[in-house]
Design a protein around this nucleic acid. Structure first.
Length: 422
DNA sequence: TCTGGGGTCCTAGGACCC
DNA sequence: TCTGGGGTCCTAGGACCC
């Protein structure tokens, strides 16, 4: 039996998405910023060559942007989500079995497949590039963790033409010796520091580390990573998309906010978004968590606080959640702070459609259901926030900055790219 | 002036029960 | 008032990912 797993990873995904509709940017440096145009979260190969790093605040790279004429974009998640769907529905139509892992990555199951995997994957890449316009890299190995390592090699070695297959290699120790511990999937900043202190510098060292020590300091998750590096699969491929267990909606404000009224509006708007996401997966929440905080990077007086509110009956109705969220804000808000961020989290999610209702329930659920369904339908058809609750405010002084936003080419009718008639 | 947002998994420790 | 082990359930917080 052949046991192999592949990972398809879109190169510089957000930056590549922006390039699709702007062919003249094909070989130009492009960066994409976080919400509020704060830091760089994605950058094209060309931008990397200019010396720009992921995570840099925009104000710190202003000079480089100017000198190299770097194209700057605010993040446009509607566009990225749509392109992602196109990429992976194409992949899904070609491969035997896959698991979407993130917006720009999917694992492929090659167990019991009799194919020249490298050749198959080179074809797959080509089809994605031709069909959607996104460049990808593919790594193939015996386990997920090793496939991530192979993927990195594919990205960095042009002679491999985007695909690296190490699934058949009898001895991969020479490869593992070249991978620093902090490049291992599942080993983050904290653990790599501790590992280095114990003399474990590379993936090879880690694969031979003491199991008890690893379990003690890195829990069973660390142990799984260790086995995976040894070629023993421990992290399953799960092709079904599991329902989310919690849903978070939070934002830094476009500017400092002091008044309770504006916080209430912002939180109401986040609540509406979270509730919408929750209904999309047919869940209802048992628990609502609201938090707000000042900017931890500033020297100003700090205040972080949050409150958990148990909901008497699991619900997904926006109007109902709004009133609990507002009560939460009332509880934790203190006058006299420069607030920078707020958010809400819905958790204790249970499967539920709006047809169900509890006995002894004070709310008129039939009415709530009708209102909610109609609003969701209209917003889906006409664009987000066509209909919204007044509690979310109209002026939105707290809304994020997006100075460099690209048009919503694929998700907003009026932004469809035009074709000029001759 | 300016530093993202949205998730998951795991464990330790407290509350509570018998 | 003091004494004890053992079990379950829940939550906060840490670590990780993209």
């Amino acid at each position: 039996m052949i046991k192999a797993v592949g990972i398809v990873d879109c190169n510089s995904f957000y930056a590549s998405c922006e390039k699709i509709f702007r062919p003249e940017l094909a070989d130009k440096p492009v960066v994409v910023l976080s919400n509020n145009d704060g830091i760089v979260i994605a950058l094209s190969q060309e931008a990397k060559k200019c010396g720009i790093k992921r995570g840099s605040p925009l104000f710190k790279i202003k000079d480089l942007v100017k000198r190299y004429n770097v194209q700057v974009f605010s993040s446009n998640y509607a566009l990225y989500g749509d392109i992602s769907q196109r990429v992976f529905s194409l992949v899904d139509s070609i491969v035997p079995d896959m698991e979407i892992y993130s917006i720009d990555e999917a694992f492929i199951n090659f167990t019991n497949v009799n194919l020249d995997l490298a050749q198959f994957c080179r074809n797959l890449r080509m089809k994605i590039h031709k069909g959607v316009g996104i460049p990808t890299s593919i790594g193939i190995a015996k386990t997920k963790t090793l496939s991530k390592i192979a993927n990195k090699i594919a990205k960095n070695d042009a002679s491999l033409r985007g695909v690296c297959d190490i699934s058949n290699m009898a001895d991969i120790s020479s490869i593992l010796k070249r991978v620093p511990v902090d490049d291992i999937w599942g080993v983050g900043w904290k653990h790599s520091e501790r590992l280095r202190k114990s003399g474990i510098e590379t993936a090879y060292d880690f694969s031979r580390a003491n199991e008890k020590w690893v379990k003690k300091h890195m829990t069973v998750q660390g142990l799984r990573t260790l086995y995976e590096l040894q070629g023993k699969p421990c992290i399953d491929l799960s092709t079904a998309v599991p329902a989310k267990q919690s849903i978070l909606s939070s934002r830094s404000f476009g500017r400092i906010i002091r008044s309770k009224e504006e916080i209430l509006e912002a939180v109401a708007s986040y609540t509406a978004r979270a509730a919408e996401k929750m209904r999309k997966q047919s869940s209802a929440a048992n628990l609502l968590y609201v938090f707000l905080r000042t900017n931890p990077f500033n020297q100003t007086r700090q205040y972080h606080n949050g409150v958990q509110i148990p909901l008497p009956v699991p619900t997904s109705a926006t109007s109902e959640l709004l009133s609990y969220a507002a009560a939460g804000v009332e509880q934790i808000y203190r006058e006299g702070f420069d607030y920078q961020k707020a958010g809400i989290m819905l958790s204790g999610l249970v499967p539920c459609n709006l047809d169900q209702f509890a006995m002894f329930d004070p709310e008129d659920r039939q009415k709530l259901k009708t209102v909610t369904v109609v609003m969701d339908e209209i917003n889906k058809k006409m664009g987000r926030n066509t209909l919204f609750y007044a509690a979310a405010g109209v002026k939105k002084p707290w809304d994020m900055r997006r100075e460099f936003e690209s048009p919503h080419y694929t998700t907003r009718w009026k932004d469809l790219p035009g074709v000029k008639a001759e």
